[in-house]
Design a protein around this nucleic acid. Sequence first.
DNA 1: CCGTATCCATTCCGATACTG
DNA 2: CAGTATCGGAATGGATACGG
Lengths: 165, 165
Amino acid sequence: MKRKCFAGESCPIARSLDVIGDWWSLLIVREALLGKRRFSEFQKSLGVAKNILTVRLRKLVAYGILEMVPATDGSTYQEYALTEKGRGLHIVLMALWQWAEGCLFESGGQEFVLVDRKDGEFVRPLALQAKDGRSLGPGDVNFVPRQKSECRQPEPSTKNGKKLR
Amino acid sequence: MKRKCFAGESCPIARSLDVIGDWWSLLIVREALLGKRRFSEFQKSLGVAKNILTVRLRKLVAYGILEMVPATDGSTYQEYALTEKGRGLHIVLMALWQWAEGCLFESGGQEFVLVDRKDGEFVRPLALQAKDGRSLGPGDVNFVPRQKSECRQPEPSTKNGKKLR
DNA sequence: CCGTATCCATTCCGATACTG
DNA sequence: CAGTATCGGAATGGATACGG
């Protein structure tokens, strides 16, 4: 049986699963928001196989989240740039980030979460900045790689020997 | 090869993919936020196969997003209730909702997006309410099923005959 | 009503080798 | 560098039948 497709669904949530509902797309967008533009940059930083990176990039381009632009340096290759639509996802990433930060980590030590965003453009390279209680709206913040973290694995409690997922 | 697991990753985004990175979990949470509590309610509204619903529910429980509570009515069965952690996801859903609303739809006709949330508890059954420009913070809004929508399929433009995904 | 068990097709993902 | 081709294993998802 074919996998159920949500492209015709009326619910935006379901719709968006078609776009970012897979394993890698969101992470690619994250990397793009952090300034990555080249195939090899995505490939190295994510450690994803090249073939699926190809497919994912192609899908994101098809959905208008990324677009291919001529390389900024002299190379003959293309680069992948976020469209406006793609940049709009940064709020989603922010929300997810904050949720996971609060729920999936045992916060150990100092936490680095947010960094200011230069108006309209994301700065790069990104400097870490300590959380200081300043309330930053989702419009003027950016997310950066987390420095260190203790891991509170949820201990999926596979009682009665059932595998999860 | 085993699928790469992000459980040990330091990035919260990657981490959260372990929890909600699959096809159904987010939709289950959405339904839960809309008031669904019973196995059959999820099953009917989502149209998901029962076996994978079982696995997904079990995973969400294991991750502390849902918890099993005795049924509110007289039945002997359990119900699935959102934990605080699970309710925290509603901001993520909101963000995703709004993004998809703006980018994945050709907005035709009147749009129904948000409805007030009774303090702390989500009302149910949900009444649709027209968007009126009032700026509601993500803390006091709820999302409801969309009424109708025109579909702007992104026309994945599978040029050179390559299949996407 | 609430699952569980089984079967099967499809899809996803990673590794590797290869091309221009 | 930026992919493409191919392979195999794993996970996903659907249908159905079954049991408490």
